[in-house]
Simulated assay, not measured.
Amino acid sequence: MSTIRITKQFDFEAGHALFGYDGKCKNVHGHSYKLSVTVIGKPITDMDNVKCGMVIDFGDLKRIVKQEIVDKFDHATVFNKNTPHIELANELKARGHDVRLVDYQPTSEMMLIDFAAIINAKLPENIKLHSLRLQETGTSHAEWFASDQE
């Protein structure tokens, strides 16, 4: 049976700031992110399986990414918890804002590394994460490929 790649795209809004950065992104600002998740596998051939012909049900992939990534990052402000931004994060939290503290600089590149680990842990054994693409602006994106990690 042929190997097939399946891609699903997700949109979320998030704010962040890059501590120590020498440009405008040191300021708190936001993006309309577009996350493309591509998995790879072989279509199910068991005619008795309701998912016959599918590598993975798009709905199942959507559920994983929505629960593990989108619902947690959408309309949140992301800060590196190991920087002085923790003070701002605590103030925002105290005022009812959704703040996500991570142990990395919240760049698109580092977010992809985080997302890959999270998604990989939730995929069925027969499905592999092939690639991720995180578009930060209309002209800028970062990509993660499983083949580059080996």
Rank of each mutant, 00 (worst) to 15 (best):
A89K: 06
M54R: 00
G23D: 14
F79N: 01
E13W: 12
K42D: 05
I64L: 06
L61R: 03
G15W: 12
F10L: 12
G23F: 11
F12K: 15
G20A: 09
H130G: 00
M110R: 08
D98W: 08
L123F: 04
G53C: 03
N90S: 12
Q105A: 08
S36N: 15
L18N: 01
P43K: 12
M1Q: 07
P106G: 03
L132T: 04
I40A: 07
V102S: 13
Y33M: 07
E125Y: 14
L92T: 09
P124L: 08
K122D: 01
T3W: 07
D114C: 08
K81A: 11
W144R: 00
N27P: 06
I119D: 05
T7G: 05
Q149L: 09
R5C: 10
A76F: 13
G20W: 15
T107E: 04
I44S: 00
F19D: 12
Q67H: 08
I119T: 09
I86N: 09
Q9T: 15
S108H: 02
E68L: 03
Q135W: 03
N126W: 14
K128D: 06
R133S: 06
V102E: 11
T83C: 04
T107W: 03
F145L: 11
K128F: 12
V37Q: 04
G41S: 00
V70H: 01
E109C: 06
L134P: 00
P43Y: 13
D74F: 05
D57K: 01
N27R: 14
I127Q: 06
A146K: 10
H31I: 04
L112F: 03
K51Q: 13
E150T: 12
T77V: 13
K66H: 12
T137Q: 07
F115I: 02
T139C: 05
C52F: 05
E91F: 12
E87F: 10
R100V: 15
L134F: 01
I127Y: 04
Y21W: 10
S2W: 09
F115D: 01
R100H: 11
N49W: 02
L132C: 11
V102R: 03
I6E: 02
G30C: 12
K81S: 11
E87N: 13
F79D: 02
D98L: 14
M110A: 05
V55Y: 00
G138F: 08
D103M: 03
N80K: 14
S2A: 10
W144G: 00
F12I: 14
M1T: 04
K24Y: 10
G138K: 07
Q67M: 15
S2C: 09
D57C: 00
N126L: 11
M110G: 00
S32M: 06
N27I: 07
